[in-house]
């Protein structure tokens, strides 16, 4: 191998180290005994996990986060699927505007979504409720779900539906026994990815949550105090959860494009 090729691979490796360093740091220091983390490391301990998870409010936050992630992911996936199917199946006037409306939310900075949601949900009497957070996270997750479902539908032969209709199946029946089974991997993958989005989102949740805190909101509030290695412990659990969800989602995407 030439020198330049070796250097370019080292460069890629360095970039990956930079990207994954914070994640690794969090994991390593969550098991480290020193309160103020530095090298050389102290000794191995599970102390921070024990302290963090002996607090009832941590468990409550995890429960809130799970409820929100599950509901927001279900809603996002449904909304994403119906929109992706509309885009796949139909052409109509103002379709560009329709798609822009569907895909725009991720371009709006989260702080702004937070402010707008705070004011709007307040008017609807939903501020400070988990429902408010679920609504906000669904708005943010649906575009991702739509993109995933749309990619899957792209792989479906459009004649498949027409064939089912010609054989006498109603559109509803065709949807239930042809389109949805074909899209199942995408639906699961969209569910996992939007659950990960919701599980990690803290800005909008922080604006609208009130007393019903989710895990990231709790981390945010601990962060405003002092250095506290409990964050590493909680953070490691959060990382594991979202990494599992994202990897699961991607494996489903990769497997389905192989078949």
């Amino acid at each position: 191998m030439r020198m330049a090729d070796i250097l370019s691979r080292v460069y890629v490796a360095a970039l990956f180290v930079f990207v994954f360093l914070p994640i690794l740091t969090s994991v390593v220091f969550s098991f480290n005994s020193d309160r103020f983390p530095t090298v050389p490391l102290g000794h191995f301990t599970t102390h921070w996990y024990e302290t963090a998870f002996s607090r009832p409010e941590v468990w409550l936050a995890f429960k809130n986060s799970l409820i929100v992630a599950f509901c927001a992911a279900s809603l996002s996936t449904m909304l994403g699927f119906v929109t992706a199917y509309t885009d796949f199946r139909y052409g109509f006037r103002f379709k560009t505007a329709y798609l822009a409306l569907a895909l725009l939310p991720p371009t709006i900075p989260l702080v702004i979504m937070g402010l707008a949601m705070l004011a709007w949900l307040g008017r609807l009497g939903l501020s400070g409720t988990l429902i408010g957070i679920i609504i906000a996270h669904t708005v943010m997750g649906a575009p991702f779900a739509m993109a995933i479902c749309r990619m899957r539908l792209q792989q479906m032969d459009p004649a498949l539906e027409a064939a089912a209709w010609n054989l006498g199946a109603s559109p509803w029946r065709t949807m239930a026994s042809v389109v949805i089974p074909f899209s199942t991997p995408a639906l699961i993958s969209a569910f996992c990815l939007t659950a990960a989005v919701s599980f990690d989102e803290f800005i909008v949740a922080w604006f609208v949550s009130g007393l019903n805190k989710t895990v990231p909101v709790m981390i945010l509030e601990i962060l405003q105090g002092n250095v506290d290695p409990q964050i590493n412990a909680i953070g490691t659990v959060v990382f594991l959860t979202s990494i599992t969800l994202v990897i699961l989602a991607q494996l489903l995407i990769l497997r389905r494009s192989a078949t």
């Binding site: 220091f29 990690d200 953070g235």
Partner: peptide
Amino acid sequence: IVPFFTSYLVRAYAWQVL
């Protein structure tokens, strides 16, 4: 793709430590 969907907040905290 993985880090894009993992807690940015905790990663920022890790940088604070580092």
